[in-house]
Write a protein that binds this DNA or RNA. Structure first.
Lengths: 120, 120
DNA sequence: CTTTCCACTATCCCGCGGGTAAGTACTGCA
DNA sequence: TGCAGTACTTACCCGCGGGATAGTGGAAAG
């Protein structure tokens, strides 16, 4: 009965972790409209530390979700772009956003109701 | 340009966090086939501590994703079930699982290739 | 000859998420 | 009298994820 996801080697678990990762999703969204450079990402993704940016980019690259292109010029220039696999993942993220927008009111109403009841 | 998700109050961010949460997803999956009791969940979701189980259940209940029904009998009996909102979220989770199954081979191939190249 | 630019990489350190374990309340059954 | 069973809650503690900061390299600009 090993429910899909306690095992770390389960496909669902791995994708779920990726989706749950703040920076991964932000990067995928940023790259959805085309390739960007390291510093561009750093500037536009507010709050990310260089360490996490590099770490996350490496993880996404390793999983084949984005491509890393080094231009051998000085100063160095590196472009990051979604692969087709990354683009298909972005489709999922879009789906989540749609759901979020559609149902956030319900969720927030539930929260208000719950908190009001608990506080009483 | 405030990219959807750095702000905590963004709908996408909140849903993403929920999806990324191991126990939340496992519970939703477990409840997809019908209501279950506290101890049933504890037994079938391997590795969850009572603390996290309760904490996660409360969170999901607060968000209106599941309902908690207390039966005033002795010994106590509490049933948890997905609400319609919870069921619509489960549809998303299913979508993620489908994607995971369809693309996990690509991802793993990419990882093997990446690791082989790095180790060299 | 020093500074600047870009893309990292390395190191230290702190907060907190989550695990373990023990406590609680209630009642029926032996 | 006391133990079992259910659904928690509370207290304590530890590991590590991630932030901040500093270092690297090499060419060109001033």
């Amino acid at each position: 009965m090993e429910t899909s996801a306690y095992a770390k080697d389960c496909p669902s678990r791995q994708i779920l972790d990726r989706i749950g990762d703040t920076w991964s999703v932000l990067i995928v969204v940023m790259l959805a409209d085309g390739p960007h450079r390291y510093t561009e990402l750093a500037k536009r993704i507010e709050g990310v530390s260089p360490k996490m940016l590099t770490q996350t980019l490496r993880g996404l690259e390793r999983d084949g979700l984005l491509s890393r292109t080094v231009h051998p010029v000085v100063p160095p220039r590196v472009d990051y772009a979604l692969t087709s696999l990354g683009q298909s993942l972005y489709a999922l993220v879009e789906g989540l956003e749609k759901w979020a927008e559609a149902h956030i009111d319900d969720v927030q109403a539930a929260r208000v109701a719950y908190d009001a009841y608990s506080a009483k």
